[in-house]
Amino acid sequence: MAALVLLALLALRSTTAGEPSERLAGTAAPKPSVIRFGVPAVGIGGRPIVGGSFLSTTHIQGLLEQEFKSDGIRVEWNFFKGAGPAVNEALAGGLLDFTSLGDLPAFIGRSAGLKTRLILTTGSRGNVYLAVPVGSPARTLEDLKGKRLVVHKGTATQLIMSRILAQRGFSESDFRIINLDSVASLPALLSGDIDGLWSGLTLLEHEDAGRVRVIFDSRTDTGRDGKAEIASQGTILVTENFATRHPDLVQRVVNVLVKTADWNSDEANRETLFTLWERSGVAAATYRRSYRGVPLALRQSPLMDGFFLASLAAGAQAALDLKHIRAPVAIDGWIDRSFLDRALAELKLEKRWTAYDAQGAPAP
């Protein structure tokens, strides 16, 4: 359904106007008055702040605003309660220049013909949780077969859920899958109207408060017993149109993001970072639990290394096999490393992060 909506929007746009780059062929692109960023989430209570990544830190600290202040360029942040599907619709409507996006909605957009470049990763080890009501007798995923499970369809959470189910010999048809966004799904779980919820970090906070019980953690419950690790890949995309017209501005954006990733990766900043992200409404204690035993640099690295590429390719193939997308997505033609490579060189951060190979081991 999400892909069909995108195709309709792209068709409408193509019949109403050409791309700005086409209309201005042969002329220098004027400097934009605004750079428009999309974020496929909202904070607790719908607040326009999220945590968890170097993009979050960049937004909270106003670092891009500082970078472009002297140019008179405003930075506009758009937070989407409708998550990835809503971001794709905004991209199709020409309403964004950059966005962060989980892997499945990024695949859906690319498969449907959205013209973007993948220029950074915001994390190659994204995980999800499955929670049940406190009084539920369920202790394992298998206990929920035939039960009502909620996931926000068209998001990275749906893809990682589908891959986990397939790894264990299930499909979505083995459960009663219900589509709800993050705002509506938690009340449904707390009221007992559903039997389980696939979601992210906030489930840990509710478990700590005794409201739910987490029975599956993709970070610890995949990659064992000879099974492959399953993780979602966070991406940062720039539209082809903006990258073509303003490569200098894209480079400056990437430089700011990579510099922030360096700060986020510094263990000396761990508590400061979690306190900063707390502005999203998620408690610092929840971030501490999520990062327990995990080096900041492992999850805050912007590198598009072998593990990221292999996981992204596996996710794209799984999305096709599971019929989440209608056409294959070629990873090689989508990724543009030039901005990241230049940022690493200019900031002298070429050796800042460990690169990992396709199996997740440190690359030689």
Rank of each mutant, 00 (worst) to 15 (best):
V329E: 02
N264A: 01
S290C: 10
A285F: 02
R279G: 15
V329T: 07
V294M: 13
W277Q: 03
E267G: 03
T275L: 00
R299V: 13
E271A: 04
R289P: 05
A330D: 12
L298M: 12
K351C: 03
A313G: 13
R279A: 07
E271F: 05
R352T: 02
F307T: 12
D266Y: 01
F339A: 01
L349S: 05
R299C: 04
P328R: 04
Q317I: 12
L312T: 13
V294Q: 13
T272C: 00
Q300V: 09
D305G: 11
N269R: 07
R337E: 07
T354Q: 14
L347T: 08
T275E: 03
A313Q: 13
R342K: 14
L309E: 12
K351H: 10
L309F: 14
D321R: 08
G306E: 13
D341F: 03
S265N: 08
S280R: 01
L347N: 11
R342G: 08
L349C: 07
A345Q: 12
S290L: 11
G293S: 09
E267V: 01
G333Y: 06
G333M: 01
S280D: 06
R337C: 03
I335F: 05
L276G: 01
P328H: 04
T275R: 06
G293Q: 13
K351T: 14
W263K: 04
T354Y: 10
A343F: 05
D321W: 14
M304D: 15
S280H: 07
W277L: 04
F307P: 11
W263S: 07
L312W: 10
V282F: 05
F339N: 00
G306C: 08
A313P: 06
R270L: 04
D321L: 10
W277G: 09
E350K: 14
E346P: 01
D336C: 07
K348H: 08
E271H: 01
F274N: 01
G293A: 09
K348A: 14
S311F: 10
L349H: 14
R270Y: 05
D321P: 11
V329G: 03
E271M: 02
G306T: 15
L298N: 07
L312V: 15
R292F: 12
D321K: 11
E271V: 09
R270Q: 02
A283W: 06
L303P: 15
S290I: 15
F339M: 00
E278V: 08
Q317A: 14
R279F: 13
W334G: 03
L303S: 04
H324A: 11
L340S: 09
R279M: 02
A319G: 08
A355Q: 06
